[in-house]
Design a protein around this nucleic acid. Structure first.
Length: 274
DNA sequence: AAACGCGCCTGCGGGC
DNA sequence: TGCCCGCAGGCGCGTT
C-alpha cells in the first residue's frame, strides 16, 4: 500500500498523538508479520520509555525512544496505523496494539502481513541493514540532477525498475513511478542509460513534483489506506495514468494501456511516453 | 551485475 | 449463488 506520501502522511498525523507519551504496554496478537515480531521480553524492555520523536525514512516509520533505542514499522502493502483516544476492540487483522500512559491506544492492522515491526537497541539504528543500504530521500537536497543522472547512466536496467529501487531513491512505489514517468514523458521500459541528461532531469523533477503533490493531498486512497486519524487521502483524484487502463490520456486523449513487467503493472500513454 | 520468478498473505472483483 | 482466477500500494530470496 503505502509509498512515501502515505507513510509521510501517517507520520504527520500520528506524531501529535504519541510524541512525548510513555509506552505503557504493547499487545501482540500474531507471531509474525513479514518477520517474527519482537518477543514479549524485548517489548517489556521498551515499555516505560517515552517517545521523543517520530521520523519517516524511506517507507519506514521510526519512533525514537528516550532510552536511546528505536521502534521501526514498515506497513508493507496493507498496513494501517489508527489512533484511538479511548478503548477500542481489536478488529480483524489487528496484530499489535500500543498503549500509552497518558491515554489512548494505537492499532497496527495489516491484513496481508507484509509489514514489519522491529526494535533497535541504543546506537544500533543507523547500522540496521534495512536502513543503511537505502538511497537518497527524493524530497531532500541530496536528490540532485547530478546524482540521478549518474545513477541512471550507470545501468542498463529499465528506468522504472531504477526509480523503484530503494537503494537509488527511496519512497517511490508502483503508483508514483507510473505517474512520474508519465509526467516526464518517458517510457517505463527504457534502459536507464538511454535517457539523455535533459530526460534524466525531467524525470528527477517529475518524481519530486508528484511526490510533493501527493503529500499535500494526504496520499492516495485506492481502497483501504487511511492516515492515523482514519482519514483517506485524495491524490487518487490527480492520478493521470495509474489504474486508468483504457481511459483517455489526460494530455493527448489517446488510450492508456497497461503492460506487465517484472510481475507488476505499468500504465502509460504510448503516444506521450517515448 | 542484473533479470526474472516466486513466495510471503488476505481480499476483492470479474467471469463463468 | 458460488467457485476459480487474476490481481493488488512491498520486499527479499534464489536461480540463471
Amino acid at each position: 500500500m503505502p509509498e512515501l506520501p502515505e507513510v509521510e502522511t501517517i507520520c504527520r498525523s500520528l506524531a501529535p498523538h504519541i510524541t512525548g507519551k510513555v509506552l505503557a504496554g504493547v499487545e501482540v496478537h500474531a507471531p509474525k508479520l513479514r518477520r517474527p515480531l519482537p518477543t514479549a521480553a524485548e517489548l517489556r524492555a521498551v515499555t516505560g520509555q517515552r517517545i521523543t520523536a517520530l521520523e519517516r525514512r524511506a517507507k519506514y516509520l521510526i519512533w525514537h525512544l528516550d532510552g536511546g533505542g528505536a521502534l521501526i514499522i514498515h506497513l508493507g502493502m496493507s498496513g494501517q496505523l489508527c489512533f484511538h483516544h479511548g478503548p477500542h476492540p481489536a478488529e480483524l487483522h489487528t496484530h499489535v496494539i500500543f498503549h500509552f500512559q497518558e491515554g489512548g491506544q494505537l492499532h497496527f492492522r495489516d491484513p496481508r502481513r507484509f509489514g514489519s515491526l522491529d526494535l533497535a537497541a541504543p546506537g544500533e539504528l543507523a547500522g540496521l541493514p534495512m536502513l543503511c543500504e537505502l538511497g537518497v530521500e527524493p524530497l531532500s537536497s541530496a536528490f540532485t540532477a547530478e546524482y540521478f543522472r549518474e545513477r541512471l547512466g550507470a545501468t542498463r536496467r529499465v528506468v522504472k525498475t531504477v526509480i523503484m529501487d530503494q537503494r537509488v531513491v527511496v519512497g517511490v512505489g508502483n503508483i508514483y513511478a507510473n505517474e512520474a514517468l508519465f509526467q516526464a514523458g518517458i517510457h517505463p521500459l527504457r534502459p536507464g542509460q538511454s535517457l539523455s541528461p535533459a530526460e534524466g532531469e525531467a524525470l528527477q523533477l517529475a518524481i519530486i513534483c508528484v511526490l510533493g503533490k501527493a503529500v499535500e493531498r494526504g496520499g492516495t486512497t485506492l481502497s483501504d489506506y487511511r492516515n492515523a486519524d482514519g482519514e483517506p487521502g485524495f491524490f487518487q483524484l490527480d492520478l493521470a495514468v495509474y489504474g486508468r487502463e483504457v481511459e483517455p490520456c489526460p494530455r493527448c486523449g489517446g488510450q492508456i494501456v497497461r503492460l506487465r513487467h517484472e510481475g507488476r503493472s505499468s500504465y502509460l500513454c504510448e503516444a506521450c511516453q517515448k
